[in-house]
């Protein structure tokens, strides 16, 4: 019998990679794209702004307390005559910084914990997730409040406390995803080829959960900022005189009747940021969702 060689097939020109494909889909989502640019703008404003502004966030001047917005002080001044604009910038640094740091903590702990528990499966995985359930059941707002009252209001402690609340959800989500993925044929194929477990987790499982992780992370940032604002609002957030958006809003709320701009402007920054993060998160979910991919 002659040797049979199957006819070689021609392929269409190379398409885009998964990420290229996702990016082009995100780029077509106008709302998500505008949100991305607005976020970049706000971040630049907060990070670079204080250097250009020429006032420190704690430079007090009793000659100009409660000034209305004007050319010299576009956002007005507060009860100590501090420039509200630079305080919003610095407050943004704090809020965005906490948002990003606590999300990073969440990502690292939650993703690793969830992925290991999911891949291990069986009793070990179940045990690890029961622990998460137990932690979930604790009233965390009270936990954070207690932590901060006992150990003092330290910004790092705030990061850790918030991260500790948020990683649980991430861990659960990754756990669920990994568990369903690990029964997929391509993971079985990797096991059949004798790949060690850490390689399977790293190369086969995590990249396929990454879409969901990225999306969830963008949604975690606003919830962390919100949590910090909530704590600030209770007077448990960042230590005065250092501002955060939350503490600025709390202060503004007290002056609402006399100087509404002290509430409106920081609240505007805060809510625009949250909206943008949510729109971006939604856009990313649509862009990365494998269901909507043309297969």
């Amino acid at each position: 019998m002659p040797e049979q060689v199957p006819p070689t097939e021609k392929l269409p020109p190379p398409g885009r990679s998964y990420w290229g494909d996702a990016w082009s889909r995100l780029a077509r989502n106008r709302l998500a794209l505008i949100s991305l640019w607005v976020l970049v703008g706000i971040t630049l404003f907060c990070v670079v702004g204080p250097w250009l502004r020429g006032y420190g966030f704690n430079d007090q001047d009793y000659a100009r307390v409660f000034a209305d917005p004007s050319g010299a002080f576009p956002f007005g001044t507060d009860d100590l005559g501090r420039d509200q604009m630079v305080r919003i910038m610095v407050g943004g640094r704090v809020s965005l910084g906490i948002g990003l740091t606590a999300t990073a903590v969440t990502l690292i702990i939650g993703v690793l914990y969830g992925a290991v528990a999911g891949y291990a499966g069986g009793r070990l995985g179940a045990l690890m997730m029961r622990l998460v359930d137990v932690l979930y059941a604790m009233p965390f707002t009270i936990f954070v409040i207690m932590l901060l009252t006992f150990f003092g209001r330290n910004m790092w402690l705030l990061f850790v406390a918030i991260g500790a609340v948020e990683w649980l959800t991430m861990a659960r989500m990754v756990y669920g995803q990994v568990r369903s993925l690990k029964e997929r044929d391509f993971v079985l194929a990797a096991r059949m080829l004798g790949q060690p477990w850490y390689r399977i987790v790293w190369r086969h499982l995590l990249p396929n959960v990454l879409g969901v992780i990225v999306v969830y992370a963008t949604l975690t940032v606003p919830s962390v900022i919100l949590l910090e604002s909530f704590l600030s609002f209770l007077g448990l957030g960042v230590q005065a005189p250092r501002p955060s958006w939350g503490s600025l809003i709390k202060f503004g709320a007290d002056q609402m009747t006399t100087s509404p701009h002290l509430l409106i402007i920081p609240a505007l920054f805060f809510s625009v940021t949250l909206f943008c993060l949510n729109f971006l998160g939604d856009g990313l979910r649509d862009a990365l969702d494998p269901q909507s991919r043309r297969d």
Binding site: Q4, P6, P7, E9, K10, P12
Partner: peptide
């Protein structure tokens, strides 16, 4: 016997 396998794929 080998099967009759029409080469290629349906058109795009």
């Amino acid at each position: 016997q080998p099967l009759y396998a029409l080469p290629g794929n349906p058109p795009d």
